[in-house]
Simulated scan of single mutants.
Amino acid sequence: MKPAKPSLDLVRSVTDEHVLRALIQHRRLTRAELAVEIGISKPTAGESVRRLTERGLVADTGERTPGGRGRGRVGLYYGLAPKLGVALAITITPAGVAAECIDVYGEVVARTTRPIDRPVHPSQVAAALEEVAAEACAAAGQPARLAVVGAADPVDRETGRLVQLPDAPFLVGELDPAAILAPLEVVVDNDVNWAALAEPALRDFAYLYLGEGLGCAIVNDGEVRRGHAGLTGEIAHLLTTGPDGRAVRFIDLFGELSLRREGTTAIDVDRLLASGSATHEIIGTAVAGVVAAVVALADPQEIVVGGSWGPALLDRIRPAVDRMPRRVPVRAATLTGEPVLDGVRVDALTRLRASMTTH
């Protein structure tokens, strides 16, 4: 039996997708240039441009190639239609709520922020989220097609709601970003997962976030492993080695060392970094105990350390890890500026382009 031939509609759909991707990459092309770029005939390229123009996805740019007087026919340049829509890249952190609008070319065309108070009030965060999304889109002059959100709290895998766990330093409560940003398509994930996904060229590793809060992302075969409820990597309650060799929950160690912000479980980063060598030695040993647990359960190729104080204590963490039965390379995160936002941006752009080329 001969294999079934693809339908004409499928062939046209694939051709249109290739045309859109070529215009995303090159910004403007003539029908002849599209034919060469994609490897199709000029009539096929022309028909695709006609279909996409009718759908409002492609437009004549008004630019022309040199032509006439022996130089051939004048060619019309086509590009993506203006104001096709943007993707929202949003972060929710103790510092505030920030939203960026990213266009299909990957450019940030608008950004707005809102500070939030401490202690955090869920109603304030919800209002800030709604406001920054609306203001960013207004500044971009384009509607949002979707939103990707990174939150400094655990995220329920099934619902996308933020989860309030004991001892979490950033207690937003059960915030529901998808409901606030409706009717947009909304993707929500934990900030540490986004930071891990932003690390370049890694497929099997554990990303240890050590800052005001404590977190871990497990990446295997290039995918974040989130667990049944999406709570994989919540390391605060792991038992590790505390002062004088006693077993202690990881989060409680910082209370015993008087390194918490007053009235919260958030780690006082400035005080931690300014503490003495003996304290850093204790913390390094405790982190190594956490690494040992992660290695035993997840078997990562390496440990990547990020956050506001983790990389600064690597000279204490590495020797302690080397004393463990199963050694694993430990290094600082590659991205140090806004790794969470970097991860959110990449995913938002990928989803935006897919929404334009597959519909």
Rank of each mutant, 00 (worst) to 15 (best):
P119F: 12
T265G: 00
S275T: 14
L272H: 02
W194E: 01
V74M: 08
Y105H: 14
A45V: 06
V187E: 00
G79L: 10
G67Y: 10
A99Y: 05
G72H: 08
T358S: 15
L197S: 11
I90D: 04
V192R: 10
T91Q: 13
V290K: 05
D221K: 03
A196C: 11
E47V: 10
R27N: 02
V330Y: 04
P115L: 04
E100Q: 15
G227E: 01
I283W: 10
R316H: 15
A278S: 13
L272S: 01
P115F: 05
L202C: 06
L162Y: 07
V120P: 03
I267A: 04
L88G: 01
R345E: 08
L352F: 08
R71K: 13
T53F: 01
R69M: 08
L352N: 10
K2V: 13
F205W: 03
T336Y: 01
L10W: 09
A333L: 09
A354V: 04
R31Q: 14
Q301K: 07
M1P: 03
C216W: 00
L214D: 09
G263N: 12
I267V: 14
Q164K: 11
S355L: 14
P177C: 05
E262V: 11
A354E: 14
P119Q: 08
R331A: 10
V304L: 12
K42F: 02
R249D: 01
G343H: 08
L181A: 08
P329M: 09
L84H: 04
V49G: 03
V97N: 04
P115I: 02
N220W: 05
E17P: 00
L162T: 13
P300M: 11
T336N: 04
R203E: 15
